[in-house]
């Protein structure tokens, strides 16, 4: 019935959306940022604990579609242990990946988002948590919106 959809809803994505990892508040976090996607109403908050330049811990709460939840969940796993600079680099790679299907450098498990570019309406869902990450690292106060994301 849903023959064409497996490139978007990969097993790993389904697994993370059904059982999101690091899905909790972090009252003692160093910084946090809210991400909001007006299209779906995806709304999430990302928390980071920093140790100097290193992301020691990451978590998120909120609600959204399968793609945005899985993306946030995989993001937290991916950035724990990375430096701020490495995390920002990863954002660039993920953005290239979800908008073009290609990227330079290793993105690890995040490669499961390679099919998203074929669903332009869903790029915002996949990138939302990453915008929140950049917002948190920059210490932005206003909620991050995907409104201006180029798709």
């Amino acid at each position: 019935m849903f023959d064409d959809i497996n490139d978007l809803y990969q097993q790993v994505i389904l697994d993370h959306c059904k059982k999101p990892r690091n899905f909790h508040e972090m009252p003692q976090c160093s910084c946090s940022a809210q991400g909001f996607n007006p299209l779906c109403g995806d709304n999430l908050k990302l928390f980071l604990t920093l140790d100097g330049e290193t992301i020691k811990d990451a978590s998120f709460v909120g609600s959204g579609c399968c793609i945005s939840k899985a993306s946030a969940s995989l993001l937290t796993e991916n950035v724990i242990g990375k430096s701020k600079t490495e995390a920002s680099q990863m954002f660039e790679r993920v953005r290239d990946l979800v908008t073009t299907g290609n990227t330079t450098g290793d993105v690890g498990k995040l490669a499961v988002f390679a099919g998203v570019y074929k669903y332009p309406a869903r790029v915002k869902c996949a990138i939302l948590a990453w915008h929140a990450l950049i917002g948190a690292l920059k210490g932005e106060v206003a909620p991050v919106s995907t409104e201006n994301e180029q798709t």
Binding site: F2, D3, Y9, C40, S63, G64, C65, C66, R122, C125
Partner: peptide, 22 residues
Amino acid sequence: DVHAHDVVEFANTAGVALRGGH
């Protein structure tokens, strides 16, 4: 446990045009 947008995306691949959102 299934977001409206996921419902609409799946329906789309089955040829069914629905609307999901607010």
